[in-house]
Write a protein that binds this DNA or RNA. Sequence first.
DNA 1: TATTGTTATACTCTATAACTATA
DNA 2: TATAGTTATAGAGTATAACAATA
Lengths: 144, 144
Amino acid sequence: MSTDRASAPPALVEALGAVAFEVMGSLTKLAAKHDLSLTQLRMLGILRDRRLTISELARALGLDRSSVSGLVDRTERRGLVRREPNPADARSVHVTVSPAGADALALGAAELAERLTALTDALRPSEADRLTVLLERMIEHRGL
Amino acid sequence: MSTDRASAPPALVEALGAVAFEVMGSLTKLAAKHDLSLTQLRMLGILRDRRLTISELARALGLDRSSVSGLVDRTERRGLVRREPNPADARSVHVTVSPAGADALALGAAELAERLTALTDALRPSEADRLTVLLERMIEHRGL
DNA sequence: TATTGTTATACTCTATAACTATA
DNA sequence: TATAGTTATAGAGTATAACAATA
């Protein structure tokens, strides 16, 4: 079998791009409303029920360690995350979500759902289900 | 009639968020590869075959006019857009894509399609079509 | 008076390079 | 030596406030 694949159809590329910008816009406004940056919100989402080192966080966010160091500084200053010692390696640090951060995260998820209703309203429930399945399939497939 | 609407289903919110971050990641890498910022690339996409004033551009990007003024400065310095006088209003300026900007845009669209293939590959052609229709419906509906 | 665009200022995000402490 | 995290520095992105020119 060949590994050749048709490139994604232009109409789909454009639709994915437009929806991505729309969703990111909602996320940015939501973050701004709570005086957070998009990256801080994203970091909270990644940390939810996990404890990661700066290096692991950098990999997950696709950023340099030095960028994450400052990011954690600012978010810690707002009381949303914490640095804790890593018992297994004295060089390393564990970053976790604080109770206040968890609250912000829960609130954010609810508000995002509300904002995205402006988009998903366009679909009937059965269509929304189909869309969800298709999007999930793409995400699962990602990286393969 | 009531204006009540069910909030977007959590699974759909999560799937939209995940896909949005994936697409934005592709766009960011693509832009970086050509030494552009994501916002510059986005501005080029909005300007494609249009001529907008700074104010119109600010509205389209969801940014303040002052932010767009600097953005146009930097993008103009790279030779990708141009400021032209607006004959209808001496206060105003028309921003257009330069030939070099149009080239960059065409290249970017092709590269984005290639990158997004990693996602869309998960779908059969008929499913990709259905997905496109659903996404387009949401975009059309946006803002109503 | 109101609007268009710009500038000054301040903060966040990000990367590179150089450093320290530990492994 | 190599790795984890930090700091210094620099450039981009963004908003607010104040401004000049034009409507």
